[in-house]
């Protein structure tokens, strides 16, 4: 029996995955690599947000500042740590992102320690009822923020000059240079935006999970699955895939007894495997044309 409640819960969870998946897609489209550190960078953002809240700032302001700081962190990470690896073979670049992951994890442990903390919610605690399902304002807010973010991103990329510049640099960096575009700076912006998205994902999920250095690890796996399922270079695909994964995982977890909390992570991977078997390029991806 698939309850509306499960679908609602699934979309809420999926929205978190979607935010991080969007970050992964953004980085992949602009630099051609998968940033395994995206989740850890988001965790750093959340901790910074926590510290800001501790200083007495209202939550919404703290989150806003956090997003701005995330922009800077993302840009600096690209410029100082990742740029070196951008032309090289994907394997080395991936391992570089893992190294960044380790550094950020270590940084969190160093600055904030490993003990668990709590992050306050942006939204009121009350519960809302509709269609026979119940959701907290936090859940509703999460989905709304994610949907709004997607719309803003689409408008940004399709309608603004900076968006076009980013798409140009992502599509063909050498052509972009020939057109006079400062590709390096654009990549910086791309990573900065991705970090903002990651920070957003973190701040949205933070109220409902204990704050610890590894908090985003599982979400990263879901986000990776969603990004790949969506086709890796399609933002829309990533979001749809994330919601799908959220729903399937929640429904399967609730209805199939064998799946306990430890096997839930396997659900999106199985879903991914099944869909990729039939459609290797993902739901919205393009068939990879390898030139001879």
């Amino acid at each position: 029996m698939i309850a509306v409640q499960q679908i609602v819960d699934g979309i809420t969870a999926g929205s978190i995955y979607a935010a991080l998946a969007l970050a992964l897609v953004l980085v992949y489209r602009s630099t051609g690599l998968v940033n395994f550190a995206q989740g850890q960078m988001a965790a750093v953002s959340v901790y910074i947000g926590w510290s800001l809240v501790e200083t007495g700032l209202p939550v919404w302001l703290a989150v806003l500042l956090t997003l701005l700081i995330s922009l800077v962190i993302g840009a600096l990470t690209e410029r100082l740590l990742i740029r070196r690896f951008e032309g090289q073979e994907p394997l080395v670049a991936i391992v570089a992102t893992v190294a960044v992951l380790i550094c950020f994890n270590g940084l969190i442990n160093l600055v904030w320690g490993g003990s668990v903390r709590a992050f306050p919610s942006l939204f009121p605690d009350d519960v809302v009822s509709f269609l026979g399902a119940r959701a907290t304002w936090g859940d509703v807010g999460t989905v709304a923020v994610l949907a709004g973010t997607v719309v803003i991103l689409q408008l940004f990329f399709l309608r603004t000059r900076l968006g076009l510049a980013l798409r140009t640099a992502a599509d063909n960096p050498s052509s972009a240079r020939l057109l006079g575009l400062p590709v390096g700076s654009l990549l910086l912006v791309g990573w900065g935006l991705a970090a903002v998205l990651g920070g957003l994902a973190g701040c949205l999920v933070a109220p409902s999970v204990p704050l610890q250095p590894n908090m985003m690890d599982t979400i990263l796996v879901y986000a990776l699955a969603a990004a790949v399922l969506g086709g890796l270079d399609s933002p829309l695909g990533a979001v749809v895939a994330a919601w799908l994964i959220g729903i399937v995982e929640t429904v399967a977890g609730a209805n199939i007894d064998v799946i306990g909390s430890d096997l839930r992570i396997a659900v999106p991977l199985v879903l991914l495997a099944l869909i990729l078997l039939v459609r290797p390029q993902g739901l919205f991806g393009h068939r990879d044309v390898e030139r001879l």
């Binding site: 510049a165 599509d171 063909n172 052509s175």
Partner: peptide, 23 residues
């Protein structure tokens, strides 16, 4: 205009032209 054209394949024709005028 490089060898092999260097068109922005994931963008539309219009976007390709606009990309040339971004500055």
């Amino acid at each position: 205009v490089p060898q092999g054209r260097g068109t922005l394949n994931r963008l539309s024709v219009r976007d390709n032209l606009l990309a040339g005028a971004l500055l």
